Computed example of a mutant assay.
Amino acid sequence: TGAEVIVTSSSREKLDRAFALGADHGINRLEEGWVERVYALTGDRGADHILEIAGGAGLGQSLKAVAPDGRISVIGVLEGFEVSGPVGPLLLKSPVVQGISVGHRRALEDLVGAVDRLGLKPVIDMRYKFTEVPEALAHLDRGPFGKVVIEF
């Protein structure tokens, strides 16, 4: 609670869905520079916490947009496993850049317990039958909004 959520996407439809889920701001990356817009929305401070899902050169944009002493959590590699970015913001802002990976069993149990207590519901974009695995994988390639579920 208390977070002001800014979502970036190249899809108006996905931004609308993010608003429906409670996002405070949406930035269409195709229509404006998202780093500049983050600064405008934060009074020139930058974002305190960025979830970096693109990887690749996207990390460079996140380094520009992060606030001093902020955090960038790298949780995806949509643009490739090699990440790159300018060293200036890294040296001047001292952000924490961390990779997110699968934790141990106890961490998963704690997470599941928190999800149950809070009543969180996952966003499911589409459900497929087991016989439709190729279609489900193609959906993943198109960039779903939420989870793609394969039912057995």
Rank of each mutant, 00 (worst) to 15 (best):
G55N: 07
E52M: 07
D110R: 10
H139M: 10
R127E: 12
S11V: 03
L41Y: 06
Q98W: 06
L111W: 15
I27W: 15
P134K: 06
P86W: 00
K121W: 08
D48S: 12
S94I: 12
H104M: 12
A65C: 08
K121C: 09
S9D: 11
A114Q: 12
R117C: 05
A40Q: 14
S94W: 09
V115L: 10
G85H: 03
E36L: 00
V133L: 14
P95K: 07
R12Q: 15
P68F: 07
L78V: 11
H139I: 06
V5Y: 05
K129W: 08
P89F: 02
K147S: 03
R117T: 10
D125R: 04
G26H: 01
L137S: 10
K14C: 01
G56M: 00
F81W: 11
D110W: 09
S84H: 10
S11A: 05
E32F: 09
S62W: 02
R105I: 12
S11Y: 01
L137G: 13
E4R: 11
E135H: 11
L108Q: 11
E31I: 07
H139W: 14
R142W: 15
E13H: 14
S62N: 04
V35R: 11
H104A: 14
G76L: 00
S11L: 05
G33R: 04
V149I: 12
G58S: 03
V35I: 04
K147T: 01
A114S: 12
M126G: 13
E36V: 06
R37G: 01
L118T: 15
K121M: 08
E82V: 13
I124D: 00
K93H: 06
E109K: 10
A20Q: 12
G56Y: 02
H49I: 13
L90P: 03
G2A: 11
V87W: 10
E13W: 09
F152S: 14
K14E: 03
W34F: 06
S9K: 07
W34K: 04
E4V: 11
I27L: 08
A23M: 01
Y39I: 04
L90V: 00
A20L: 15
Y39V: 05
G55E: 05
I124P: 04
F130W: 14
V148M: 02
E79H: 12
H25N: 06
A57T: 11
G88C: 10
G113I: 02
Y39E: 12
L120W: 13
I53W: 11
L30T: 14
A67Y: 01
R142C: 15
F81G: 12
L51V: 13
L111Y: 15
Q61W: 08
P89Q: 08
V77F: 15
G26M: 02
T8H: 03
E151P: 11
L90T: 02
G99S: 04
G119T: 02
L30S: 14
R12V: 13
R142P: 15
S62V: 06
W34V: 00
E52F: 02
V83N: 13
V133A: 11
T42F: 00
G43W: 02
R37Y: 04
E82A: 09
V148G: 01
S84N: 05
G43K: 05
G88N: 14
S84E: 15
F152G: 10
H25Q: 06
